[in-house]
Design a binder for these strands. Structure first.
Lengths: 122, 122
DNA sequence: CGGCGATATGACATTTAATACATAACGAAC
DNA sequence: GTTCGTTATGTATTAAATGTCATATCGCCG
């Protein structure tokens, strides 16, 4: 029984994209994008955290850091009331999300093309 | 005396590119590319490590891991002898370096363009 | 007013990754 | 066979990211 011996191991191309402050500190990358998107969908930070399977503590810390680095609020936060409270995205946050999404789509295309070219050269 | 108040904080776009095995483990990224390039230039792993300001231990571990994940040798290693020993790149490694370099140039262009488009949308 | 559910935050524990330290093996040259 | 610089590798220490726990605040509503 013959066994196929691959002439080379498969190599994959990966990339990570993120927005940062001028000091290099990360503001928005994939995870925080997801967090904001989920807040937008659910209207609540705790619900978003639960959906994503991360602790409220971490979600809150991430959100706070992003806002601090950006210098403006990404969410309008309310606490108390019948529902306990809620968090909704600001207009700026929504705009940022849309721009980031478009950025990501564009980069995905570029990476795919670069990967094809790369394999030809290998 | 008036003070200029920026309407928005500057946001930078960053990306990281790397080759991985199918299991997702990283093989080659910027640092390891530099390491291989330096080995090629110096003909020695320890000299390369010194040049890059990292410990020999780390350089050796990085190289070993890359080779293990790729399934083939990136360097020909010799120890002992008058000079103590040396490390030189294999043909496959040289080819890999060239392909990675081209990949990076291509991606840099793509990122620059994506960043311009991104800022317009913001 | 007391309970509920969400935001808000500090303190501590744990897990993971990077780095440092130590030590062995090798082989040509002298 | 001793010296020297390099490859080779295990172990230990540190540092950073992440998770856990506890506790407080808020404000509608029954």
């Amino acid at each position: 029984m013959a066994r196929i011996k691959p002439s080379h191991i498969e190599v994959l191309l990966n990339y990570k994209l993120w927005l940062s402050s001028v000091t290099g500190e990360g503001i928005i990358e994939e995870d925080r994008y997801e967090l904001l998107r989920e807040i937008h969908k659910k209207g609540s930070l705790s619900a978003a955290a639960k959906e994503l399977g991360i602790s409220y503590r971490k979600a809150w810390g991430d959100l706070k850091k992003a806002e601090q680095l950006l210098g403006y609020e990404l969410t309008v936060k309310k606490r108390g009331g019948a529902s306990g409270g809620c968090s909704t995205l600001t207009d700026k946050a929504i705009k940022l999300l849309e721009a980031y999404k478009a950025l990501h789509v564009q980069m995905d295309d570029a990476v795919e093309k670069a990967y094809r070219d790369f394999k030809k050269k290998l």
